[in-house]
Design a protein around this nucleic acid. Structure first.
Lengths: 118, 118
DNA sequence: GCTTGACTTTGAGTATGCTCTAAGTTGTAG
DNA sequence: CTACAACTTAGAGCATACTCAAAGTCAAGC
């Protein structure tokens, strides 16, 4: 599929997709005879994973490091798993903090509620 | 207290504190006879609240709008409460999404685990 | 009274993650 | 065969949130 279809499916702009390729997040994207990018289903799977890492607060630089390891092959699988484990730990901590923040905000709202009578 | 003590207590650099004042997050900071900022306990309470909003993903611009309303006085209390309610909703949604991401990452780790035997 | 150190201001510089522009190429439709 | 839309690249520009630099002020200690 071409870049527009891929952009549609992944919900990432064509600009950003090219940018992701430029900084090494996307690799080995096929090209057709006219030099246009030809994306595959595998590219979608990988891109969705990039989105997941990004949405959970991983920097593009760190995602790129993961992509580097992926490129190096099977022998880096254990290391990649460890990186993912470290990341889930950070994520768990963030969810815990956000849950606390949420509770505090709700307390503040409750306090506002006692002040406002109308 | 001076800016260094305040920076220590709030865990925000003096640079950033001045920046926050410049963009209107901090207001009416007292000054001593030499023109140096003299922070109060109230400033700490408000700054901690700024941190909470920021840590839950609110932009400095939106925090500034909240600060504007706060400055306008009591009659904006209801509106501020509504802004906070809207923000808690966004936060709840984000926590839900992150929890899903966490689950998916753990599934991927489990999958790595079946691949790696050593 | 002069040095020292912490403060002050204005404005410039930086990192991240896009986002867009300019100039050019290619493939299909009329 | 030419117009046109969609692609290509390199590189500039932008928003956010800092972060720092330069030049100056001020109070306390020697």
């Amino acid at each position: 599929m071409n870049i527009q279809e891929f952009a549609e499916l992944t919900q990432i702009s064509a600009h950003t997709i090219r940018y992701y390729e430029k900084i090494g997040l996307l690799r080995n994207i096929n090209r057709n005879s006219s030099g246009h990018r030809a994306f595959t289903k595998n590219d979608i799977v990988w891109t969705d994973f990039i989105k997941r890492l990004k949405d959970t607060g991983m920097s593009l630089q760190d995602i790129r490091r993961y992509a580097d390891l992926r490129e190096e092959g099977e022998h880096t699988a254990k290391l990649r798993m460890q990186l993912l484990q470290a990341h889930t730990k950070i994520l768990e901590e963030r969810i815990a903090i956000e849950t606390l923040h949420l509770q505090k905000l709700k307390e503040k709202i409750k306090f506002y509620d006692t002040l406002i009578i109308d």
